[in-house]
Design a protein around this nucleic acid. Structure first.
Lengths: 206, 206
DNA sequence: ACCTGAACACCGTTCAAGT
DNA sequence: ACCTGAACACCGTTCAAGT
């Protein structure tokens, strides 16, 4: 994990990892079957840092929001992790998080087509957000950032809206954008919880 | 692209690519600076397949939905692509798609904090969905799928909700889940378009 | 039960040299 | 302007051998 945090996934090597651990590289293969196993273990390990809120709180939205926010914070803290999410997540820490998510939504009155959609939707949204944010040229890579801005401005006839309203131009902060989108999702989920219980109808929008 | 589609990103090698092209591996370095460049080019190339709807249609929701659906279809058609989205997307085809997205939202009356949130939210959602769907054990890997189901069932005291309502158990189809979540996002965006124009207020939720 | 060293088949990339 | 071959420094992984 230290190696990953400091140097990124591209520089994680069985040989370098072994060196860090003070052994020969081939020794690792006694404890681990393959390099992919190392990555799977590292990925599940960061989920241990995701604090799981107390179950059964009266305000389910607060609970879900807390979980999703913690999850996002952890993904951003370990920038290599988001890119690794393209592998099945079945470690115990991941499952504990999923259990909370499903249980809370279920108690909130979300029934089954919407339940799956809600769990997927929230997960997809966090993963996509973290992936995009950790990918994008950060403030440090001012050069790359400036280059794309220039490129957009140079081709502003072809991309008029992007050149004036696009990201990297307005650079609103990630947090508020994330919160707004999360609110939209939660509103939708909440509306369908109401549907299940008999109030309102919002699902069909042809 | 053919090599990627057939064998996946893990088997894309400069040497194998060269062989496929009928040259020596080192020849490639005349046309391309590094292997990452190859991946960047491949990634932008698939965006050329994303059909961009006609601009300025009366129903902006239909336009956005069409774009997002096409985008998703292309990502799923090239399963290696979603995992590659963890790199800046600045090719011309990507930019054309972004331009449509921003322009259509802007014309729909979405103003700037919400505009960025909407563009990010939609993009994050498609990317996350495609990544998760292409990652998850497909029907072909029945073994892996069954193994995780068994594991969940064996530990059903610890994961009661997952064991009975989790994914891989109910296996609702991806398409409907995706559509439901997309509807939630669009509803939220639409509500904020109305806000901008003076009707309703939904942004603040304590 | 755990560690080591040598070895294998493969990488991405450079560079002088060819046409 | 484009292609080639040899070469470098590095991979993941195996396996017989040690303790």
């Amino acid at each position: 994990m230290a190696l990953l945090d400091e140097e990124g996934v591209g520089r994680l090597t069985m040989r370098r990892l072994a060196e860090r651990l003070g052994t020969g590289s081939t020794t690792l293969y006694w404890h681990v079957k393959t390099k992919d196993d190392v990555l799977d273990l590292a990925l599940d390990a960061i989920f241990a840092e995701v604090g799981i809120p107390q179950r059964g709180a009266p305000d389910w939205r607060a609970g879900i929001t807390a979980l999703i926010s913690e999850w996002r914070a952890v993904l951003l803290k370990h920038p290599w992790s988001a890119a690794l999410l393209g592998r099945p997540m079945l470690g115990p820490n991941v499952l504990a998080r999923s259990e909370f998510l499903y249980a809370t939504l279920l108690e909130a009155g979300i029934a089954d087509p919407h339940l799956t959609a809600a769990a997927y939707g929230l997960s997809n949204y966090v993963i996509g957000s973290a992936l995009m944010q950790t990918t994008w040229p950060t403030g440090e890579e001012q050069a790359a950032r400036q280059a794309t801005q220039d490129h957009l401005h140079a081709n502003r006839e072809r991309y008029p809206t992007l050149a004036t309203h696009g990201p990297l131009v307005v650079d609103g902060d990630w947090d508020t954008s994330f919160t707004i989108g999360l609110t939209w999702l939660l509103d939708g989920i909440q509306a369908n919880a109401a549907t299940t219980r008999g109030r309102g109808r919002q699902t069909e929008r042809e």
